[in-house]
Amino acid sequence: MTNVDYAVDDDTIAVVEDTDLPRRLKDEVYETLEAREGATVEEANELAAAVETRYLNTRVDPLDPVGTVSAQSIGEPGTQLTMNTFHYAGVAEIDVTQGLPRLIELVDARKTPDTPMMTVYLEGEYATEREKAHEVVWNIEATQILALGDVSTNVADMRVQIALNEDTLEERMISAEEVAEIIEDSLGVKTIQQGSQIEFGPEEPSYRDLLQLVEELRDITFKGIEEVSRVVIRREELDNGNEEFVLYTEGSAFGDVLDIEGVDASRTTCNNIHEIHRNLGIEAAREAIIEETNNTLAEQGLDDVNVRHLMLVADMMSNRGEIESIGRHGISGSKESVLARAAFEVTVNHLLNAAIHGEVDDLDGVTENVIVGKPIKLGTGDVDLRMGSTSSGSSQAD
C-alpha cells in the first residue's frame, strides 16, 4: 500500500498499485488524481496505464552498453563544438570559455577554469534597488589603490604619496582612515593621513625599498574579494514579469560570496565545480557538472543530447565522494583492467607495472575484450545458449 494516506478510494489505489511503477511515480499519480477532484476509477486506470507505458519505454534494456552509448552520444556532437571563447549570456564585458575547451575543462575536472566566473543573485531590496545592489558589488569586487586615487613617489624625501578621490571613497563606502589603517597593517609602515592625502615611506632611506613599497601597495585589496577582479551588474526579467539585478563576476570565490549580506545563496552559482564541491557538497557538484555540460552543448545548438548521458558521466566523476577526472589521472587510470588502462595512455608503463606486480585481467569490460578479440560481455555477448532435452526426447533451446 501507499506510504502516505491519499484522498482516493480503495478501487483507485488498487488500480495504481497493480502497475509496475516505482513508489515515487505511484505517489505522483496519487497526487495528480487528488488534484483532479472526482476522478473516476476508469480515469485513474487510464492515467496509471499511460504513465506505466511511458516508464517502461524509457527504461534501459538489460545488458545495454550504456557507457559506450553515452560516450558516442556526447563525443559525436562534441566534434561540432567550436574552439572559441564567447561573450557570456550577452554580457559584452565578460568573456567565458565555451565550446570544446570548456567541455575538456569539465571532463578533466580542472582545479581552476580558464575564465572563472560567478552568477550572483540578490534577495529582497538588494535585487530591486540599484543603490543596494551596488553595495553588494563593492563588497565583492576587489578594490585596489589605483581605483581609489593617484599614487606618486617623492624621491627627494623618500616618501610614497597617495591622493585619494573623495567621490570614489564615498561611492565604494570606504574612508581615508580605513585606507591608511589597511596600509599600516599590510606593509608594516607608519602612515600620515590628512584628509584625502596619505603619506608614508621606508624606515631607512632607500630608493629600492621605496619602489618595493609602491609595488606591494598596488597588490593590497582594500575592499571586496581579492580573486574577483570585476563585477558587471545587469537588470534581468524574471519569469513572472518582474525585474531584478543580477551580478556577473570575473574571477570566483564562491564560499566568500555566499556569506555577503544581500546575496541569495539558494540561486547563486559559479563555473568552478571544485568550489561548489567544497562549499555545497558532492551532490551539488554533480548537478553543476550536468548543468555546465548541458549549457556548453546548448550554447552551440547541440541541446538534443539526452541528459541521461550527461548524468552518467557526472555519476562516474562523483560517485566516490570526490570529483575525479575522466583520464589517466582519474577514472580511466584507476580501472581494474590492465588492458583498459594500457589502451588509454602510457601503454608501456601500465603493462610493465602490471607485469612487475603480477596483475591478472579478468576481461570483464568492453575495451579489454575488443583488444583480445573476444565478444564483449554486454548485449547478446553476455547471453549463453545451450541445447537441452525434454523428457519426451525432443531438444529445445534454454
Rank of each mutant, 00 (worst) to 15 (best):
D5A: 06
D362H: 11
V366W: 05
L103S: 05
S175R: 11
E93R: 08
G188C: 10
M158G: 03
Y121C: 01
Q98C: 06
Q212C: 01
D108K: 11
D20H: 11
S392D: 15
V346L: 07
D303P: 07
G327Y: 01
L312W: 01
I225H: 07
F344S: 02
T143G: 04
I233W: 06
E184I: 01
R286Y: 05
S196H: 09
L378A: 11
I326P: 09
D18G: 14
M387W: 14
K132V: 07
A147K: 15
A314C: 05
H134E: 15
A109M: 06
V4I: 15
G262K: 01
S332A: 11
E261C: 02
G124T: 04
V107Y: 10
T293A: 10
W138Y: 15
T85N: 14
L352D: 09
Y55R: 10
E336G: 05
R23Y: 13
V41W: 02
K132A: 14
E336L: 07
Q98K: 13
Q194H: 09
F86K: 11
V189D: 04
M311T: 12
P113D: 03
L25N: 13
Q212N: 11
P65A: 08
L351N: 02
R36N: 12
N84T: 14
L148Q: 03
T112Q: 14
G241P: 01
D398M: 08
E34K: 11
E203T: 15
L339A: 03
R110E: 07
E52T: 07
G149L: 10
P65E: 01
Y121V: 00
M83D: 13
V338A: 00
D64N: 08
V29K: 03
G373R: 01
L47M: 13
E204I: 15
M316Y: 04
V136C: 10
V51A: 14
V96K: 10
L210G: 10
A180F: 02
I174K: 06
R54P: 00
T380D: 15
V107H: 05
I323Q: 00
E236F: 00
P116D: 08
A253T: 07
R208H: 11
N242P: 00
R208Y: 14
N349T: 15
E34Q: 13
A147P: 12
V246E: 03
M118A: 07
D185S: 12
V307G: 01
T40D: 05
N154F: 10
V16K: 11
E42G: 04
M173P: 00
